[in-house]
């Protein structure tokens, strides 16, 4: 039970507990920073697995992501400071069952299969190998990843910007009129604001 194992168990415990706490805290901003904590723990586990670049890159990326998530939390959600306890849960029992079921099956699978153990030699400079790999024979994969990221950026800007080609976004989708300039054709969607009056 040398030092690495102890460190691994500590990080694993942090990751799982903060992951669970994420969904039962009241305040949204606290939830996002708890998620950040679990990501940092996972990142450090990766460093223990002799993949330092991946681990620290995860920490780096997740810190910024959770920061943005905290911003969105406060923008959209109701009580970001958590002053007022909140039970925002629906189909509660079903989701608990689903979560436990998935966890049980996976652990069952893990215990059953025998894994070939061919551990990585610690001497390997994983950063250099990753570098050669990125620009070496899997260059194509990374080009596609780059382009998809670009496409995402463009898509997210279009989706969230207000002034679209056909008028501002908050006029809602209105079917085109039959004769130009007339009443929009088709069934009028009954006007209801965000308050859906739960007619299940």
């Amino acid at each position: 039970m040398n030092v690495i194992d102890i460190a691994f168990w500590i990080f694993a415990a942090i990751a799982v507990i903060s992951g669970w706490r994420v969904f039962c805290t009241d305040s949204m901003v606290r939830a996002s920073f708890l998620l950040l904590l679990s990501f940092i723990a996972v990142g450090l586990i990766m460093v223990l697995l002799n993949a330092p670049y991946l681990g620290i890159a995860t920490v780096f990326m997740m810190a910024v992501e959770m920061m943005v998530m905290a911003l969105f939390m406060v923008m959209f959600m109701m009580n970001p400071a958590g002053l007022n306890p909140m039970m925002m849960v629906h189909q509660h029992r079903f989701s608990i069952a689903a979560g436990v079921f998935v966890f049980a099956t996976l652990t069952g699978l893990i215990c059953v299969t025998r894994f070939t153990s061919n551990p990585v030699d610690p001497g390997l400079d994983s950063v250099a190998s990753l570098g050669k790999e990125l620009l070496g024979n899997s260059m194509l994969i990374f080009e596609t990843a780059g382009v998809t990221l670009l496409a995402t950026m463009v898509a997210s800007v279009i989706l969230s910007s207000r002034s679209g080609r056909f008028g501002t976004a908050d006029t809602g989708a209105v079917p085109p009129p039959l004769e130009p300039g007339g009443e929009p054709a088709g069934r009028q969607p009954e006007q209801h604001s965000g308050h859906a009056h739960h007619h299940h």
């Binding site: 109701m78 009580n79 007022n84 909140m86 039970m87 925002m88 849960v89 629906h90 965000g194 308050h195």
Partner: peptide, 10 residues
Amino acid sequence: MGGVPYGRMM
């Protein structure tokens, strides 16, 4: 605020 059945939703 406070969730669907209780508080103001939006």
